[in-house]
């Protein structure tokens, strides 16, 4: 039997993916756990950060990329920690060189260290330059439909609004804004930031989001491997429910699932 979702792909630029769960690689105990969690999540796209190599580093120290071979995973370099368009663009140029010309990137330009809320003017500036330089830009943004539209018009390949603050695990705080974005945006909309547990991922997918990106919810779970698997199932379930089309909510008309007639001990009508 063919799985009904066999033709359901996430399309980002020129690439197609089966998994709609994207995962980060930060905050794990070690690279072995990182790899095991990613395997359990079924994710095909994994984010990485770009940082200065430590001058005092032991040359034999293991490297993240030894555990995440680019032949096996689509690496999504991010600009985490960048506060200006300039820093973000420089970081992604380095990432492109590091990953042999790889152009699919995650842009995030932060506004402040306390909230990690995006600085949207700088984000827009960086997106424009990166698109002009041939990058395929997936962009972390506020859950503001107008900003999302501006980014789509610039040519970003995915719009990635926050569900709540990065690393907060507060879940989907404003599903109505996500719906507004989903109604207007044609490129994939991926919830980035704020997912705390499996139900949050399922809710995002049921709303019609095209994917979910999460790191902390998996890495900081008591058992990251189990949570990675739970997230995979939640994203699949949420996507399935969205495609199936949920029943309408009917607040005031209770409608039993069992027949109204034939209950024992009653006169026949």
């Amino acid at each position: 039997m063919t799985e009904p979702d066999d033709t359901d792909f996430l399309t980002l630029g020129a690439r197609r993916f089966r998994s709609r769960l994207l995962v980060g690689t930060g905050k794990y105990r070690d690279f072995t756990q990182t790899r095991a969690a990613i395997e359990a999540s079924g994710a095909e796209i994994v984010t990485v950060a770009i940082r200065r190599i430590n001058l005092g580093q032991n040359p034999d120290e293991p490297n993240l990329l030894d555990y995440l071979p680019p032949e096996r995973f689509t690496l999504l370099p991010n600009t985490a920690g960048c506060y200006t368009a300039e820093e973000a663009v420089r970081t992604l140029r380095l990432a492109r060189e590091l990953l042999d010309g790889h152009t699919l990137v995650k842009l995030e330009v932060l506004g402040d260290a306390e909230t990690l809320y995006p600085n949207m003017p700088e984000t827009l500036k960086a997106a424009e330059r990166l698109v002009a330089e041939g990058f395929e830009v997936m962009v972390y943004c506020s859950d503001d439909p107008i900003q999302a539209q501006l980014l789509e018009e610039m040519g970003c390949v995915a719009i990635m609004p926050l569900a709540s603050l990065i690393g907060s695990g507060m879940g989907i705080l404003n599903p109505w804004n996500l719906r507004l974005i989903l109604e207007r945006i044609r490129v994939p909309v991926i919830v980035d930031a704020g997912v705390g547990t499996a139900s949050d991922a399922a809710i995002a997918m049921e709303l019609g989001c095209d994917g979910v990106l999460t790191n902390t919810a998996i890495a900081q779970a008591r058992d990251p491997i189990r949570m990675a698997r739970a997230m995979r199932l939640a994203v699949e379930s949420g996507r399935g429910a969205y495609r199936a089309g949920r029943m309408p909510r009917k607040f005031y008309s209770a409608d039993p699932s069992s027949p109204l007639t034939g209950v024992i001990g009653r006169p026949t009508p």
Partner: peptide
């Protein structure tokens, strides 16, 4: 990468060497 061998470092240069690390 192809130009590392022929790029001489000059007085006052600012050089950044980066790697991929875990991140979200």
């Amino acid at each position: 990468r192809s130009l590392y061998a022929q790029t001489a470092i000059a007085e006052g240069d600012a050089i950044e060497v980066v790697v991929a690390v875990g991140g979200g």
